[in-house]
Amino acid sequence: MGDTLPSIAISSFSIFSAMLFASQVAAFSVFNYKISEIKPKNNPDDIVRKTREMNFSVRSEELRGAFRRINAGISVLTLISIFIVAATLGVVAEPPPEMSRVLTAAVCLFATHFFMSFIITCHQVFLFFDTAYAGESV
């Protein structure tokens, strides 16, 4: 690795992991807002109330499942970012040549895995919002 590449990798993945954590917090608040938004209002008619409660429970479970998948993807991305920073720091610390090759390979492997996980998570988020904008159930 060159001189500037490790510092760029450390900076970018450190910032990216903080942004991922912030997005998890934001997703949690959106999830709580969405659940409270679809909560049924009290209705004196017993049949209408029961139907709304059933629809609420089904819809909230669908939302919960979608947000769990997105949250799992973001968690994986955050962990991979931390591993990349740790492995890059190991390379920068100038370990023995054999260890340096292993750490460089680990950085490449983690970076590849990160970008593949990023694509999958972006696709899940796209499907979630596309379905929500279409007005269908998630």
Results as ranks from 00 to 15, higher is better:
residue 19 M to L: 14
residue 19 M to R: 14
residue 20 L to K: 02
residue 20 L to W: 04
residue 20 L to R: 01
residue 21 F to C: 09
residue 21 F to M: 11
residue 21 F to E: 15
residue 21 F to V: 04
residue 21 F to D: 14
residue 21 F to L: 11
residue 22 A to P: 07
residue 22 A to K: 11
residue 22 A to N: 11
residue 22 A to C: 05
residue 22 A to I: 05
residue 22 A to Y: 06
residue 23 S to H: 13
residue 24 Q to F: 06
residue 25 V to M: 11
residue 25 V to K: 14
residue 25 V to Q: 14
residue 26 A to H: 10
residue 26 A to T: 10
residue 26 A to S: 12
residue 26 A to M: 05
residue 26 A to G: 05
residue 27 A to M: 13
residue 27 A to P: 09
residue 27 A to S: 14
residue 28 F to S: 10
residue 28 F to D: 15
residue 28 F to C: 08
residue 28 F to I: 04
residue 28 F to G: 12
residue 29 S to I: 04
residue 29 S to Y: 08
residue 30 V to G: 05
residue 30 V to Q: 15
residue 30 V to I: 13
residue 30 V to R: 12
residue 30 V to C: 12
residue 30 V to S: 15
residue 30 V to N: 10
residue 31 F to N: 07
residue 31 F to H: 13
residue 31 F to L: 12
residue 31 F to W: 09
residue 31 F to M: 08
residue 31 F to Q: 10
residue 32 N to C: 09
residue 32 N to F: 02
residue 32 N to M: 08
residue 32 N to W: 03
residue 33 Y to R: 08
residue 33 Y to I: 02
residue 34 K to E: 11
residue 35 I to K: 02
residue 35 I to P: 04
residue 36 S to L: 03
residue 36 S to H: 03
residue 36 S to Q: 07
residue 36 S to Y: 02
residue 36 S to C: 02
residue 37 E to W: 04
residue 37 E to R: 05
residue 37 E to A: 11
residue 37 E to I: 00
residue 37 E to T: 05
residue 39 K to G: 02
residue 40 P to D: 00
residue 40 P to E: 00
residue 41 K to W: 01
residue 41 K to H: 09
residue 42 N to Y: 15
residue 43 N to Y: 06
residue 43 N to I: 03
residue 43 N to T: 06
residue 43 N to Q: 06
residue 43 N to L: 01
residue 44 P to Y: 03
residue 44 P to R: 02
residue 44 P to T: 03
residue 45 D to F: 08
residue 45 D to M: 04
residue 46 D to K: 15
residue 47 I to W: 08
residue 47 I to N: 14
residue 47 I to V: 14
residue 47 I to P: 08
residue 48 V to N: 03
residue 48 V to T: 11
residue 48 V to Y: 09
residue 48 V to P: 08
residue 49 R to H: 10
residue 49 R to I: 00
residue 49 R to M: 15
residue 49 R to T: 07
residue 50 K to C: 05
residue 50 K to D: 08
residue 51 T to H: 09
residue 51 T to F: 09
residue 51 T to M: 10
residue 51 T to C: 06
residue 51 T to D: 13
residue 53 E to H: 00
residue 53 E to D: 09
residue 54 M to K: 12
residue 54 M to Y: 12
residue 55 N to L: 11
residue 55 N to F: 09
residue 55 N to A: 13
residue 55 N to D: 15
residue 55 N to Y: 05
residue 56 F to P: 01
residue 56 F to M: 02
residue 56 F to Q: 02
residue 57 S to D: 11
residue 58 V to W: 08
residue 58 V to D: 15
residue 59 R to I: 00
residue 59 R to L: 05
residue 59 R to S: 15
residue 59 R to A: 15
residue 60 S to I: 00
residue 60 S to Y: 01
residue 60 S to Q: 13
residue 60 S to N: 06
residue 60 S to L: 01
residue 61 E to C: 07
residue 61 E to G: 06
residue 61 E to Q: 12
residue 62 E to L: 13
residue 62 E to H: 09
residue 62 E to C: 10
residue 62 E to A: 07
residue 62 E to D: 10
residue 62 E to P: 06
residue 63 L to K: 01
residue 63 L to M: 05
residue 63 L to E: 03
residue 63 L to V: 00
residue 63 L to Y: 02
residue 63 L to G: 03
residue 64 R to I: 00
residue 64 R to P: 03
residue 64 R to V: 00
residue 65 G to E: 14
residue 65 G to D: 13
residue 66 A to K: 06
residue 66 A to C: 07
residue 66 A to H: 02
